[in-house]
């Protein structure tokens, strides 16, 4: 030890770290797709003229956004088994929690996106004879989604970083894998540095993609 680094153990632990990264990626993908789908439904509810529906969605979003994520993760992990009567497992619990939590944030992005579509476009869709559902699906949501793509991806980067919080319930993600490998090889510092490097590289390349997208969309219309 004596404060000197030994990065040679990293190579041996790569397969193990990879299993952790796989779960991190799976969690990010599930929470992103599920969160955007659920978030879009929530956004439609928030913008709905049906007052109780709009209020319920608004409550959901405001509550989720006002509680620290790590608490929501713990709370779900501890409380859901009490209700359902059987343990859910840390990984499944994380998948459900993140989807429900991220939906609140994606909801606000999609709401802004829907409102960014001009009234003229909405009127043109209705004038064509589209029903509310058709107008949303064919005219409004595609444009809302396109307008908000950079913001949706930025939120996904935040989500990717936040997945590391599942360490609180012991789910085996990249951070947890690095911690375990660090203990096994007695090289905790190297492992954590390496994990941070992986997070950094992935987030940085994603934000580069976002920047490129923003430039591409800036030239349209």
């Amino acid at each position: 030890m004596h404060g000197d680094f030994d990065f040679s153990v990293l190579v041996d632990s790569l397969p193990f770290l990879w299993t952790g990264l796989q779960f991190t990626l799976k969690l990010t993908a599930v929470a992103m797709l599920g969160g955007i789908a659920l978030g879009t439904l929530l956004a439609l509810a928030r913008l709905s003229p049906i007052a109780p529906l709009a209020r319920a969605a608004s409550w959901y979003v405001n509550i989720m956004r006002s509680i620290p994520l790590v608490m929501v993760i713990l709370w779900f992990f501890l409380v859901i088994p009490l209700i359902t009567g059987k343990p859910m497992g840390a990984e499944n619990s994380a998948l459900v929690t993140f989807t429900l939590f991220e939906a609140a944030f994606y909801c606000e992005i999609m709401r802004a996106g829907i409102q960014s579509v001009s009234r003229g476009q909405v009127a043109a869709g209705y004038a064509m004879g589209f029903t509310y559902g058709q107008n949303m699906r064919l005219v409004i949501l595609p444009q809302a989604f396109r307008n908000m793509l950079p913001v949706l991806l930025t939120q996904t980067i935040v989500l990717f970083q936040d997945t590391s919080l599942v360490y609180a319930i012991g789910a085996k993600d990249l951070l947890k894998a690095a911690e375990v490998a660090g203990k096994n090889y007695n090289r905790p510092v190297e492992m954590v540095i390496f994990a941070a490097l992986i997070y950094f590289v992935m987030c940085y390349s994603l934000s580069f993609v976002v920047k490129r997208l923003q430039q591409r969309f800036a030239f349209k219309r």
Binding site: G120, A124, A127, Q143, R146
Partner: peptide, 9 residues
């Protein structure tokens, strides 16, 4: 419409 309102996508 005044502003055409073709679907841009």
């Amino acid at each position: 419409f005044q502003h055409f309102e073709l679907f841009p996508h």
